[in-house]
């Protein structure tokens, strides 16, 4: 195998210097294509599928749960069925668990072993979620991390950090912001950030929309 990816086989490679792992993945891609294991179209479809999954899915679930108590109960008791109701495909998650924040209990999610994340619901994890810094500190200094995200839970709040080490994927259901009573579901969804569904901070204040 040559060091530089060859340029004359039907698709472009990046022109800048590639890292060892980037070279390796391009080489594997080329081999899979040459051997007919996958096609260019398969790769493009998979990229489009990965990009289509985004925190907007989670925000839809949370906003509906805020306005519809019966839906919230279904989301907590049978999350995959609740996803199907909202046309969100959660089938690829082995098991999906929703953690409801209250005034007294606040949840935060990490994967200390790697980067397990509810991708069908939230898309690709942010880089900080995969960083060693977050993975180490989330379990022993969760309040320190929340402070960095602008949140200071009071002493009488119980912080529960979930380390997703196995087949369960966790989504935090953040508290509905104060003063959001008059807002409709679509507007509420704009207040539901990715980070609030990982649990490191709150949903945005209602005044953000003004």
């Amino acid at each position: 195998m040559s060091d530089a990816p060859s340029e004359a086989h039907g698709h472009d490679h990046p022109k800048h210097e590639l890292s060892y792992y980037a070279k390796r993945i391009y080489a594997i891609r080329d081999l899979l294509l040459e051997k007919g294991v996958i096609t260019e179209k398969d790769i493009q479809c998979q990229i489009e599928y990965q990009e289509a999954r985004s925190p907007a899915n989670g925000a839809k679930l949370v906003a509906r749960a805020w306005v519809d108590p019966a839906f919230k109960a279904r989301l907590i008791n049978d999350p995959k069925r609740a996803c199907a109701e909202m046309d969100i495909d959660a089938a690829s998650i082995n098991e999906f668990v929703v953690l409801e924040n209250t005034q007294k209990v606040r949840h935060m999610v990490v994967c200390t072993l790697c980067s397990c994340y509810p991708r069908p619901i939230l898309g690709r994890p942010p880089d900080w979620y995969k960083s060693l810094n977050y993975r180490q500190r989330a379990v022993n200094d969760p309040r320190g991390i929340m402070r960095e995200f602008g949140l200071v839970p009071s002493d009488d709040v119980e912080v529960r950090v979930h380390d997703s080490t196995a087949d369960i994927r966790y989504l935090v259901l953040p508290l509905r912001p104060e003063g959001s009573g008059g807002l409709g579901e679509d507007e509420l969804a704009k207040l539901v950030t990715r980070d609030s569904m990982i649990g490191v901070t709150d949903a945005l204040p209602a005044a953000t929309l003004k």
């Binding site: 379990v139 022993n140 969760p142 309040r143 002493d155 009488d156 709040v157 119980e158 912080v159 529960r160 950090v161 979930h162 380390d163 997703s164 080490t165 196995a166 087949d167 369960i168």
Partner: peptide, 15 residues
């Protein structure tokens, strides 16, 4: 898990 410097109510939950 980590000692007395932790907030007394806080928990870590592992699968």
């Amino acid at each position: 898990v980590w000692g007395a410097t932790q907030a007394p109510r806080d928990k870590v939950l592992v699968d």
